[in-house]
Structures are given as C-alpha cells and as structure tokens.
Design a protein around this nucleic acid. Structure first.
Lengths: 188, 188, 188, 188
DNA sequence: GATGAATGAGACTTCATTCAT
DNA sequence: GATGAATGAAGTCTCATTCAT
C-alpha cells in the first residue's frame, strides 16, 4: 500500500544507504563523537548530502541504530526459526555481544547510556527487538533451558551487561558471558 | 609526617575538595562531557581555580576516579575484614554496582571504556583495586562459594557488566545482578 | 593542468586570498600576537573560515610568509634579469628592507626569530629565497662590486639587520642601510 | 639628594633586586612572553611580591630595561674614560650586540619593537643612553675614525641592526657586525 | 609585607548546522 | 539534488591581576 513518503530517486536512495553504512562503520569503530564531516569524507559525499537525508546528527544516530537493530532482529528470527528453541536465546545473546558487538563502540555507547536514549531514538525498532527477545525467551522457557521467572526486561539488561563486558575486556568476554548465562539456566 | 609536597593552604584544600565533590557529582549525573565551566559554576568558583588544581580535564577525571576508587577499596577492605569471607566478594560486587554505582554514569563510562583508560588515568588506584579484588576472590574460593577457576580479570569484567546493568536499567538491576552472580557460584 | 589538488571553488579561492591579504596587513601592522578572531573580523568572515583554509595559526603564518617570500623572490629575479648584475644585490637588499619592509613588523618578527623558525614554517620558500640571494651575490662578486669573501648566510644576516633598522627607525633607515651596504662593497 | 621615596626595608630591597635579576635572566633567555608566575617561581617568591614592587608586567619590563641600560651606560662610560676615543664607539657597539646581547632575546624584542616602545617604557634611561652614545660618537669623529656626518639616531639604528643580526644568526654575527662597522668608518 | 590561591577575560580551536554555488 | 564553504557558539586552557590568609 504505497509508501506514504515519495520514493527517493535512485541516486538519492543509493546515497542514503551509503551514508548509513559509512556512519555505522565509523561510529562502531570510533565512537559517536566522530564529526559529520569525517563521515561525509569517508562516504565520498558532501556534508550537505548527509543533512538532506538526516536533519540532525541525532537523527543519523537513530537511523543507524534502527538499521542495526533490524539486522539484529532479522538474525535473531533466523535463529528462532532454525528450530533449536532450547538454545536460541543463549546463542542470540552471545552473538549479540561477541560477534556483533565486537567492534561496536557506538552501539555500546548508545545502548549503555551516554545521554542517549534508545526508546526516544528508535522506538519502533526497539519494540520489534523486545518482541523478538520475548519470543526467544518464551521458547527457551518452554524448552526448560531458561529460568521460568526471567522477564524480557531482565533479559535485555543482561544483554547490556554482556556488551559492556565485551567492549571492556574482549579477551575474557567469551568465558565471562558463558558464566553469566549459566545463571540464567539455573533452576530458581 | 615528612610529606614531600607542601600541605595546601586551608582555603586551597577546601576548594580542592569542593571541586572534587562537585566534579564527581556532576560527572556521575551527566556523563563526562560536561564542560569544566559548568563544574566551576556549580562549585561557585572560577574556571581557572579548577585548572590550578587539575591542569587538564583528564587530570580532573583521574583525580575523581582515584578518589572514588579509594573509597571503594576502603569499603571493600572493611567487608573483607568483617570476617565473612564466603560472601564478601558477592557483597562487594553487588554493593559496587547497586549502592555506589546508582548515579555513576560518568564513572561507568570511564571504567567501561569510552576511549579513556583507567590504567593510564589512575594506575596506582587501579592496582590497589585489583589487589583487593584478588583477595576477595581468593577468600571466596577458599570458602568454596566461588568457582575455583575464576580469575581476577574475569571478576573485574563481571563488575563492569553489573555496572552497565545498573546504569542502564536500574529498576531490575538488583535481581539481574543476583542472577549473574549465581553463575559465579556454580561448580565448574 | 594536472594539478593534484582540486582547484578551489571560486568563492573559497576569493576568501583564501582575502584572508591572506588581511592577515598579512594585520600581522605587518601589529605583530604576530593579533588574535585570529580579529583578523576574521577585519576580513568580514567567521573565524571558522580562516581555520578551514589554515588549520593552525602557525599554518597561517607560514602561508603569509610563503606568499610574501614568493613576491620577494619574484621581484628579486626581475632585478637579476634586468641585466645590472653589479647593483642588483644592493638594490635587492635596499628594496627588501625599505620598500617592502616598510610596515613589516610581523614579517620581521618571523625572520628575526621570536621563537618562530622560517625553515620549519616555509622551507621551500626559504630555500628559493636563499638560492636567489646566492645568485645575486655571485653576480655582484663577479662584477666586482661585492666583497669576494661574503657568504650567503652573511648576506641574509645583513638583510635581517636592515629590516630591524627599517622597522625600528624608519626615518633614518634609508641612509643607515646605505651606510651598511658600503661595508659590503669595500675591498677585503 | 634625599630619596623622596621612603627607603625600603632591607628584605624588601633585597626582593626587589632579586626580582629584577630573575626577570632579566628569564626575559633574556626566553623572551617577553614568559608568565609572571614563572618568574616568581624562579625567584622563589610569590607572584604577589612581584606586583608589590612592579604594579604591572609592563612596569617590570620598564624596570628591567632601565636596569640593563644603566649597566650598559656605565660600561660605555668606562670605555670612554679608558682613553681610546678612536675605537670606543666601535668597541661599544660590538660589545653591546655580541657580548651583552648574546642571549638577550627579551632586550632585543623590546628594542626591536613588538609593540613596546622604549621611550615610553624608560625615558630617563633612554636619554642617558643617547647622551652617552653621543659622546662616544663625537669622540670617534674628532679622532677621525667615524664618518663626520653620522648622527646619534643613526648610530642607534645601527646598534638595533647589529642586535638583530646577533639574535638571528649568532654564528656569523661577529663577522657581519665588523662589516657593518666598516661602513661607518668610510670617508663620505 | 609576603604569599599563592582565585578570578575572569580572552586565546586557539572544533564542529553541528546552514546556505550560496 | 549535491556540494563543500561559511558560520558562530561552545569548549579547553592560559595568564595578568587582585585579594584573602
């Protein structure tokens, strides 16, 4: 049913994607304080072009995070559909912290605070993310691998914790996250 | 006695304390990007006064963190000396995240990364902290309450994770941290 | 054609020139301690614009000096090519101090030291300058008007001295410089 | 007769001397931009003590220059009284630049401009200096060693030039100054 | 009188955002 | 639409000068 927004011209759409990818890579590698000009330079665009697509730097954050969360949700749903409900939740948390969060300074800064609030920034994506997390959690609880009294908010808090671990001490992160997850499996 | 550095004049010492406390409160509440001028304003001082005591913004960070870590180490040692070796480690981690970390956004940013390195910033205090943590860990392992294969670095990573949890989702932090700690108690 | 650096946009090039001229006039008239903001104000530009073209105040010095030295070298070469080898050196020194150095306080400060090193600031232009000076000197020596034992470094030192004279006591500079140059003509 | 100002207490007089000497050494070595606090530190005094004796930084410059000029005048007079009128002027100029000006960045900056005017700063000392210079000049002219048409202002301008040479290219300064002085000896 | 801590204006520089080309 | 130049409000830090101790 018809995108309400006018469809972008082909080159504009391409530029939007390019900005998004460049911004993600840059924020992930160097944190959120990278200047817009630097992102423009890396994308081979003018700064004005970025502002045409994203009216403020915060809007760019929002779009990047939204994009990222959508990828995460997609990957999580794949895991869920793979038919291993018992381990999907744990695999997802581990993957989110270790594989995806490995170099993700920017994502971690956003998720862990730094004055930026995910719920304000990208409420729709956040809702989808929580919904997926709920499904993963329920599946694991029904399979008997996760504590039955665990809530979605708690599961998200644990993800935040695991990402902090990954970002701060990458070399022991794998083991520590495994330990943390142990606590989620224990019977009440 | 025999302090090599001349003792500060009474008013200077008072102001130094005032800056340290104001800076701690401000960084904790609003993160590390608060301008020095704002801290000066809140302390009722000129900006130059802060720079007299701490020649760089980083030096101020360092002093705040050092001050804070010393308080933490002192409190941890009290716990250790209280004669409950079995629970001291867990009490310490919980206290560090929940009681002290409650409003500690700035401290968390420093400890959790953000381009700032604790070891460079306050190496002495960091060393004391790690040493205390080691003692708490050993005591718990000898009492049989902590996994024997846990290392100090891992314990520190867990603290970082717990602080992230506290800072991001305070209302479920208590429960989540308890869950995380469960994983440290499990037999290998 | 084949300029590796993209040619500046017309407005940018105009502003670059404007900054250079304003900076030259201002430094020359008031010395090197004039704030960048003041130069921006006089040029009718924002301070940021200056920093876009010259990333540091030192870089602006460098560009001003380079610009100036190039003019000087060009003028000197014209003198050399005019076919009066016997007098070109003396004309050049006199011109450099009197005509061009008339209000050149800033340039004099740079050339005469003040903690700023020409060789670091604009090595290429400095090299060209020394090379031209060498040619002038050789020509005069072959024509028998300059002492045969005079070196390029000594000639440069004399220029520095003449500029100091000009800058300090303009009203007697012409005569004094003539006297100084007399010493260079004398037979050993 | 009878100093109109109350005589200083012994310690105050000592401090005044100490500041003057330290300031001279520091300005000479590092230029006029050295902070007052640094001079205080080197003198082992508080900054306030300097301000008790010299109400502004400019006043301190003035006093330093005055002090210095007095020494110079004294030394020049000694030269004059030594009974070698033919060479006293040349010896004086050479000594002023080479021996005394060797590391005299501060003095050179003041004399060579930098927005500071000797006549405003220390008019009395300047007058004495000019008077001495006049005597040296007259003596040399009567002895037939200096051009009869040389004026005091021109002689001073030459000193400024020689100091610039010394300050800019110390290693050839001796020779260059000798060359310059040759010009003053030549018959008109 | 001496001290050195405090002040606060102002320097240099960065960067989100706007706008002429 | 795209570009990248211009803007100007901050931010960090310095230092001449004043003032409480």
């Amino acid at each position: 049913m018809g995108d309400p927004a006018k469809p972008l011209r082909a080159d504009a759409a391409r530029n939007r994607e390019l900005v998004l990818e460049t911004a993600y890579a840059t924020f992930a590698a160097e944190g959120l304080s990278v200047p817009i000009d630097e992102i423009a330079r890396r994308a081979g665009l003018g700064a004005g072009t970025i502002y045409r697509h994203f009216p403020t730097k915060n809007a760019l954050f929002a779009a990047v995070i939204e994009h990222r969360l959508q990828q995460i949700v997609t990957a999580g749903r794949t895991l869920l559909d793979a038919g291993e409900p018992a381990e999907a939740l744990f695999g997802f948390i581990q993957a989110m912290a270790v594989d995806w969060g490995a170099a993700d300074q920017g994502l971690h800064q956003v998720i862990a605070g730094d004055g930026i609030d995910l719920d304000e920034l990208a409420p729709a994506a956040e809702a989808q993310f929580l919904s997926l997390l709920g499904e993963l959690l329920t599946a694991a609880q029904q399979a008997g691998t996760a504590r039955p009294d665990l809530t979605v908010r708690e599961a998200k808090a644990i993800i935040v914790g695991c990402q902090a671990v990954q970002s701060h001490t990458p070399d022991v992160a794998d083991r520590v996250i495994t330990l943390i997850l142990t606590g989620l499996r224990a019977k009440p």
